[in-house]
Amino acid sequence: MLRVISSVEAVERLKAAGFNTNVNRLNAGLRQGVYPFGCAIKLNEYVYEIYSTLLDKWIAERSERT
C-alpha cells in the first residue's frame, strides 16, 4: 500500500539522504513531471501527492553504495 506524505516530509527524507533540495524545488519538479514518486494536481491551487514507498525507492536507486 502506498502512503501519501507531504512535501515537507519528503524534503526531510531527501535531505537526510544527502540531497540538497527544498519544498519549492520539489513541488516545481512534481508540477513538471520530473519526479516519478509523486504528482501535482491542479485544483484552485496545486495539491501534491508524494508516495513514500516510491520516494524511498528513488532515493535508494540514487544513493552511493558503500
Rank of each mutant, 00 (worst) to 15 (best):
N20K: 15
R13G: 03
L43W: 02
E64T: 13
L2I: 10
M1R: 09
L26R: 02
A17S: 14
C39Q: 15
L2Y: 09
I59Y: 12
C39T: 13
L2T: 08
A28W: 07
Y46D: 03
E9F: 00
L26M: 02
T53S: 14
Y35K: 01
N22V: 07
N44R: 12
Y51N: 02
G38L: 05
T21R: 01
A28F: 12
E9K: 09
L30C: 09
L55P: 00
E49G: 00
L54D: 14
W58L: 05
Y48M: 05
N27S: 10
V4Q: 10
E64C: 11
S63Y: 04
F19V: 15
F37T: 00
N27G: 08
N24E: 09
G33L: 10
N27M: 11
A16G: 07
G33Q: 12
T53N: 13
A60Y: 11
G18A: 06
A10I: 08
A10V: 13
Y48R: 00
C39E: 15
L26T: 04
R31T: 10
V34W: 11
R13L: 15
R31F: 08
K42A: 04
R31Q: 13
R65V: 14
S6A: 09
T53W: 08
N24S: 12
N27Q: 15
K15S: 09
D56T: 13
Y46E: 00
N22A: 10
R65L: 13
L26E: 01
R3E: 11
R31W: 06
R65T: 13
V34D: 11
R13Q: 07
A16C: 04
A28R: 05
E45W: 14
F19Q: 05
G18C: 09
I41M: 05
E49R: 14
I50F: 12
V8P: 02
Y35D: 04
L26A: 07
R62Y: 15
